[in-house]
Amino acid sequence: MNHDEATRLMAVEKYLLNEMPPELRDEFEEHFFDCPECSADLRATEAFLAAAKDEMKEVRVAKPSPAPSRKSPFEFLWRPAFALPAFALLLIVIAYQNLVIYPHFANEIAQLRTPQLLPSLSLAGGNSRGGETPSITVRPSQPFALSFDIPTQGRFSSYTCLLYSPSGSIAFQIQVSAQQAKDTISISIPAGHRETGTYTLKVQGDADGSAAGPASDLAHYRFAVKEQD
């Protein structure tokens, strides 16, 4: 093998990469011992490959940093400093519902389903503009029935009954038709938010059948509510 043939076959590279057949390898080894150019190319290429291998060993492939996880705005709910007090508060609420609220509702429902004798106060046949003020004594949680007459007049198509509390505010109002007003009116006064003291029941006549229209005062009834100890 001569120099031109070694150059054409790229003998230096194939020799160092161990890609040369055994018979050509022997011929090239005999050649480069006598060829200064091939010997120089062989030493230079060998040095380059060795340096490249050392450099590759030192190179570390950079790992991509994980993307920062997006924090939930409700993450603080799972922290012990918040979760434990919140859980304790939840237990207190559940216990209060089971021991207080639900039994109270059950008792009220049972009362609604059970027939009861309600205390009653009748204002029928009288007008409390003068004379003694009638009164009724009830338990704080006990409703009572209130009955009264409406002095009907043919020019009114309906009537409005307004009940004023002892503080002067309207406790409630009820509209009564002309047909209903022919009989004694009986209404139930609930116990919720009820004040003790003297109430005033005002009866008005509505000329156009609407409580929002012109009204005429027909009667004022006064009565007192007392609570039983």
Rank of each mutant, 00 (worst) to 15 (best):
A106C: 05
I170N: 02
K53D: 09
N2L: 00
D208Q: 10
A40D: 15
S158A: 15
N18E: 10
Q142F: 15
C38D: 15
A215M: 12
A11G: 09
A50I: 11
T184K: 15
M10K: 13
A47M: 13
Q97P: 11
T45W: 09
V225P: 06
L201W: 05
D4R: 13
N107F: 03
S122E: 07
S210G: 04
I189V: 14
V203T: 15
Q142V: 08
Q116S: 13
Y102A: 09
A219T: 01
P36I: 01
T137K: 06
S141P: 07
E23H: 04
C161F: 13
Y159L: 03
L99M: 12
F33K: 10
L91K: 01
A211D: 05
P36Y: 06
F105G: 07
L121Y: 08
P85G: 10
V225H: 02
R113Y: 00
F223C: 06
Y102T: 07
E5L: 04
A207K: 11
S177P: 04
Q142Y: 09
S69C: 02
S169Y: 10
I170R: 14
K14W: 00
V61I: 13
D54A: 14
A211N: 07
P115N: 09
A44F: 08
G213C: 10
W78G: 00
N127R: 01
P151R: 09
Q175F: 02
F148S: 12
K71P: 01
Y159T: 11
S39K: 10
S216R: 04
L112T: 04
Q179S: 12
A224K: 15
E195T: 03
M10C: 06
T200I: 07
C35T: 06
